[in-house]
Amino acid sequence: MRWIWIDRILVLEKQHRCVAIKNISLAEELLRDHLPATECRPAFPVMPNTLVIEGMAQAAGILVGASNDFTEKVILAKISKASFFEAARPGFSLHFDATIERLDRQGASTHGTVQLIDPENGSRKPMAEIDLLFSHVDQNMAGLEFPDRNFVFTGQFMDLLRQSGFGDLIPTDFVEE
């Protein structure tokens, strides 16, 4: 299964900012059941807000990972804030903009905004604000050991980086899953 909730990275500035885009398509299977028609109303297909958070976690997580040349295993540890203002409906695009607030050896905190882009006229509306906390898992699990290989940044993420034109940020000795 492809567990990737951003389609393309537009900006990736190490230790600073990542901007990514996600196009919401009615062909996505999950929209069939979210939300189905009831006796009271017709179907209302909308991308679940939890997956919008996942999209932000992927954009911000790639930013945190790239900031240390993907040497750390970056795990989403906490959703510090998640506020939503619009529904993520098919036919629209989500514009994820993540910036690093704090980065150190143990982890990072990020601030993120999501805008809903209407392709009809290019207008944008604030869709969500999502602040996250990431852990560098090898630095925070005293006594526990994880595999040497970086199991967080799978081939899916590395392919996304390459397809978005940021393949040069992947270290030449990086071992992909």
């Binding site: 540890a77 906490k78 510090s80 607030e101 704090r102 143990q106 906390l133 852990s135 925070n140």
Partner: peptide
Amino acid sequence: SIDFLDIVFRLEK
């Protein structure tokens, strides 16, 4: 444990 990292970051800010 992860909350302590969060608290440190928030105190800094």
